[in-house]
Simulated assay, not measured.
Amino acid sequence: MKEEPEVTGTSMDDHREKQQATVCVLDASTYVGFWILNGLLAKGYAVRAAIQKNGDGEILKNIREMEKAEERLEVSSVDVLDYHSILLALRGCSALFCCLDSPDGYDERNVDIEARGAINVVEACAQTEGIEKVVFSSSMAAAIWRDNIGSDNDVDERSWSDQDFCRKLKLWYALSKTLSEQTAWALAMDRAVNMVSINSGLVLGPGVTQQNPKTTLAYLKGTPEMYENGVLAIVDVDFMVDVHIKAFRDQSTRGRYFCFNQVVNTEEEAMRLAQRLSPLISLPPSYENQGNEPYAERLRTKKLSKLVEGTAY
């Protein structure tokens, strides 16, 4: 993974912070968690990688190999449905990157598992002395789905997906992400936990079709509707990691932050996306005779721009 340029304004205090503080990534065996782990190590942080036994096999193997070579990396096992195992994983840590994804995919039967995990994680943070900040990795799927998805209204960090609408269309990934994030926010506010959430678009990066197939396919359910309504967003994994770390380091960050590089709203861009995700998804037929007029982009990223420019609020 290429190293991100240092954030402007870093000082000797920042250097001492990295040397002294351990940050936790839970679940580091998810695709997003693994790349955040790599980004933190590249920045000089000591990291505790909390992994679940049912995580991606290749990612788990990579983390174990990294542990042998990297003295700043410590690996611990965790079960997000076991509150006490989370407490143990957080002991001695100053911050948490919470990256929950279902390794078994998303369906009606397990739609609430992430929400249950989020309750345990946030409660454990509230009860763990030393946790100063939680960066909660969520999804834009928790913001875009509702009855009036085709309206002219902009979609920004104040927007939430409608749970009943998600159930009606069987958008289990979107429902799970909405439930887990709303649950996390409710408990964080009640327990006075300092939390920010990063709502990422469809994450693209090295090995994503092999290491993150179920989550990728789950996000893509409803692709035609997202595409036609200007809310199909993608994000490069390096940029996503950059945003997560900036949100952690900037003390002024508050609330939710959309995180994406591009809105896919032309046929040419849709074809390129399909090619990047092949063979996970089938390539669409040619659109040569259907024109290439872009659909209007409706996603707004004022907060993201300020964060990336170093002026978050």
Rank of each mutant, 00 (worst) to 15 (best):
D13L: 13
V25Q: 05
D27G: 03
A28D: 04
T30H: 08
Y31N: 02
G33A: 10
I36H: 09
N38R: 15
L40A: 08
A42Q: 15
A42D: 13
G44S: 09
A46S: 15
R48T: 13
I51N: 01
N54K: 15
I59D: 01
L60N: 05
K61E: 13
E65Y: 08
E65F: 08
L73H: 10
V75E: 08
V78H: 01
V78I: 11
L88C: 13
A89H: 04
A89I: 05
D101R: 14
D101K: 13
D104Y: 09
G105E: 09
D107F: 03
D107S: 02
V111I: 03
V111S: 05
E114T: 07
I119A: 11
N120I: 03
I131N: 10
E132T: 10
V134L: 04
S138Y: 00
A141H: 05
I144P: 01
G150C: 04
V155W: 10
R158T: 08
R158Y: 04
S161M: 01
D162S: 13
Y173Q: 03
S180W: 03
W185Q: 07
D190M: 00
R191P: 06
M195S: 12
S197R: 06
L202H: 00
L202R: 08
L202C: 11
V203N: 10
P206M: 11
G207H: 03
Q211T: 04
A218I: 02
T223P: 02
P224S: 01
M226S: 04
Y227H: 05
V235R: 00
D242V: 04
H244G: 07
A247N: 04
R249C: 12
Q251W: 00
Q251G: 15
Q251C: 11
F258T: 02
F260E: 04
E269I: 01
S278K: 11
S286G: 06
Y287A: 06
P294L: 06
Y295K: 08
A296W: 08
T301A: 11
S305P: 04
G310S: 01
T311Q: 15
A312N: 05
Y313A: 05
Y313V: 00
